[in-house]
Amino acid sequence: MEGIIAIWQRDMIKFFRDRARMIGSFSMPILFLVVFGVGMGGAMESLVASGIGTDEDFNYVEFIFPGIVSMTLLMTSVFSSLSVIQDRDFGYMREILVSPVSRVNIALGKMLGSASVAFVQGVMMFVLMPFLGISIDLVTLLQLLPVMFMIACAFSSLGLLVASLLNSMQGFQLVVNILVMPMIFLSGALFPLSNMPGWVDFIVTLNPVTYGVDLMKNIMIDVDNLSATVQEEMGLNLTFFGQPVTMTGEVFFLLGFTALLILLATLMFRRKN
């Protein structure tokens, strides 16, 4: 148990010491926020407005913001988890592996460390809310925080498994290109994914980011007061192989996903040649 805490603590100390990284990792989400929120926002709003024909109060940035926060969670989680590759190259991983800390605790500690880093980064995105004209009340916030942490855990365990499969930091760029970016684009985080071809739909359905984003949207946006058309247009009516998706279902999907990947990562840590 103390092993988990120690591994988690190391990530925390290093995160709070490295201010440059903390600031630096905001650049990407802010860029996306500007491009997709402000840039495409006007077009989306008029599109939706023409579709529903009323002047229902509709703010596209409200839809984008949960997506951008999820994206921050995903990127920070995966990148933090990939630091175990660096630990392996620079040796600290051996200090951990040669100690009596059980392999599953090593995986859990690392996962919690990355998730916590991502969680803090994600929460820090909230300082942008006043500039975007979005507000959040306390009750919503208290619902949102645990969900965000859970999402970060799912993404971190994914990063951990990928890290244990990669041999070197060289694969890093590859992971970003073939895993992280597609996961973001095919999740509905940045734009709604209604009326997509079947194979895209299939990927979207299996993509854990889809459910993370959807959970956050459902908590942050007052969905019930939206007209059915807006809900449909904004991709809020997710289905899982024909079944409508519920928030409880999404939570279980993410928890199951995390448990499975931690298990696989543990097996990888145990493997030796």
């Binding site: 190391r10 100390i13 290093k14 010491r17 490295d18 620079f90 040796g91 600290y92 051996r94 200090e95």
Partner: peptide, 10 residues
């Protein structure tokens, strides 16, 4: 170990 395994950032 033969190679350094300290965490230099700590």
């Amino acid at each position: 170990f033969q190679q350094n395994t300290l965490d230099e950032k700590l």
